[in-house]
């Protein structure tokens, strides 16, 4: 009996020697993630470069870990960050606290906060773990303008702009 068991075990070992290895040589090789993977957040922009975030702090309200801190300010046409009257002047996520549940994404009325696919978060200090708005916001898309931008009066007066369907 013992010999059979041993042989079967050895056979498994032998078989795996010829299998393709599952180990990825991280960081040289990065494993692709699933489309619905919840990684680090980003703050999205519209095509014209305006920030989607309107500083409503519903993400902070939904966050079960109290990881998000938002402070809003008023937009003016000479200094416009987002459509409508309000934008986030401070937006911080403490990634040490974040549990990547994605409630913030669900709560967001403008689809501004998205849990993207970046999972490479390592910090050497607690302060580094707090991602500020500058670190979270995506770069200005081609053809768009950086914020704050100067816009003609009345061009973006809707509080929540007509929603563009997510593609």
């Amino acid at each position: 009996m013992f010999a059979v068991e041993l042989a079967r075990g050895m056979w498994t070992t032998l078989k795996s020697m010829f299998e393709e290895p599952v180990t990825y040589q991280y960081p040289e090789v990065k494993r692709p993630v699933r489309p619905r993977f919840k990684g680090r957040h980003v703050l999205a922009r519209y095509k014209n470069g305006l920030e989607r975030c309107i500083g409503c702090a519903l993400c902070a309200a939904a966050c079960p870990a109290s990881a998000i801190f938002v402070e809003a300010s008023e937009n003016i046409d000479r200094r416009r960050f987002s459509p409508g009257e309000r934008y986030a002047s401070t937006y911080e996520i403490n990634l040490l606290r974040c549990i990547f549940c994605g409630f913030c994404e669900d709560a967001c009325p403008t689809e501004a906060i998205v849990l993207e696919h970046n999972y490479e978060m390592s910090f050497t200090s607690r302060r580094d773990a707090i991602y500020t708005k500058e670190r979270l916001i995506v770069p200005v898309p081609p053809g768009g303008d950086p914020t704050p931008m100067i816009v003609p009066p009345g061009s973006f007066d809707r509080a929540i702009p007509e929603m563009e369907d997510p593609d």
């Binding site: 702090a57 902070a60 309200a61 402070e71 809003a72 300010s73 008023e74 009257e85 309000r86």
Partner: peptide, 9 residues
């Protein structure tokens, strides 16, 4: 108080 904070905060 305009846009100062959300009441629940």
């Amino acid at each position: 108080f305009r846009f100062g904070a959300r009441p629940w905060e």
